[in-house]
Design a protein around this nucleic acid. Structure first.
Length: 269
DNA sequence: AGGGCAACCCGGACGC
DNA sequence: TGCGTCCGGGTTGCCC
């Protein structure tokens, strides 16, 4: 569920909170969330400073002083909270990183995980990912090259992490809406102009959503005014039956490649 | 290459 | 209130 904008928002806010802070302890309440024995995990992160936080696709990478990296994927419904014992959410917490005053809580990890890896292992884990859509080097030209030979549905292609990294179900619909293209169109019948529209839609929807704090339901910390703010700005996602903000037609819903898909036939073609 | 599908997992929603 | 059932969602892997 959390996609590029949500993770980018987390990255920015968390960097302000925990960069340069030292992990005093790690509490593992659900062993499946990690990839090594609990003791090993605790030993490797103990007394380690968080050097930096990086985002790649829908992952966050917490870089530790000793070169190890905590690789986070929230998958479906995972989220985080930074605070103390008193204001922590009343939800099932799978992992807690304790910083001496506050803790970073990892909540609702089902298929999600926080894995301890070396740099080399992380590179291997992430090696199949496509380019970062907001990378400065990801030019229109690069996108045009990427789309060459692609035949699948627009929707299916956009959420394919090997094609582009970080786009999920919500923003694939929003991007198609912005580009005024139906998600069911196939890549090989887009004309040159439509490929350009698609590129610009990707490059505008994702940063805008990030600026508005993504669509996470829960704040990252007390008085967090940023996280979750984008919900009111979404144009089609989860808006079945509502009228289109651009043309007034009714937003439709149907399943595309076994995914929820929202679109407007009034102005998407 | 793309499409379809099952498996993974469990909190939350829903029904009785 | 409480218990049982089912669903969802990103990702991987397998098959057609």
């Amino acid at each position: 569920m959390p996609e590029l904008p949500e993770m980018e928002n987390y990255k920015k806010l968390l960097t302000e909170k925990i960069a340069e802070k030292t992990i005093m302890n790690a509490m593992i309440k659900r062993e499946k969330s990690i990839n090594v024995p609990i003791k090993t995990f605790q030993q490797q992160v103990h007394s380690q400073k968080i050097i930096s936080i990086e985002r790649r696709a829908k992952h966050l990478l917490f870089h530790l002083e000793n070169g190890y990296i905590l690789l986070l994927h929230l998958m479906l419904g995972g989220w985080m909270y930074y605070g103390n014992e008193e204001d922590k959410p009343d939800r099932s917490i799978q992992v807690e990183l304790y910083f001496g005053d506050n803790s970073l809580y990892f909540i609702g990890l089902r298929l999600g995980y926080l894995h301890l890896f070396t740099k080399k292992e992380v590179d291997s884990e992430l090696s199949d990912l496509g380019p970062e859509p907001l990378d400065i080097n990801f030019s229109l030209n690069a996108f045009q090259d990427l789309t060459k030979g692609k035949k699948g549905k627009l929707k299916t292609t956009l959420v394919d992490q090997k094609f582009l990294a970080g786009i999920g179900n919500c923003y694939s619909d929003e991007i198609c809406f912005e580009a005024q293209l139906l998600p069911t169109r196939t890549m090989n019948n887009l004309n040159d102009q439509e490929v350009v529209q698609l590129y610009h839609a990707i490059r505008s929807v994702l940063p805008t959503a990030t600026e508005h704090g993504g669509y996470m339901e829960n704040p990252l910390f007390t008085n967090d005014q940023k996280t979750g703010g984008v919900s009111n700005f979404l144009k089609v996602y989860d808006r079945e039956g509502e009228s289109c903000k651009r043309c007034g037609a009714t937003i439709l819903f149907k399943e595309v490649s076994s995914r929820k898909c929202f679109y407007c036939t009034g102005c998407q073609h």
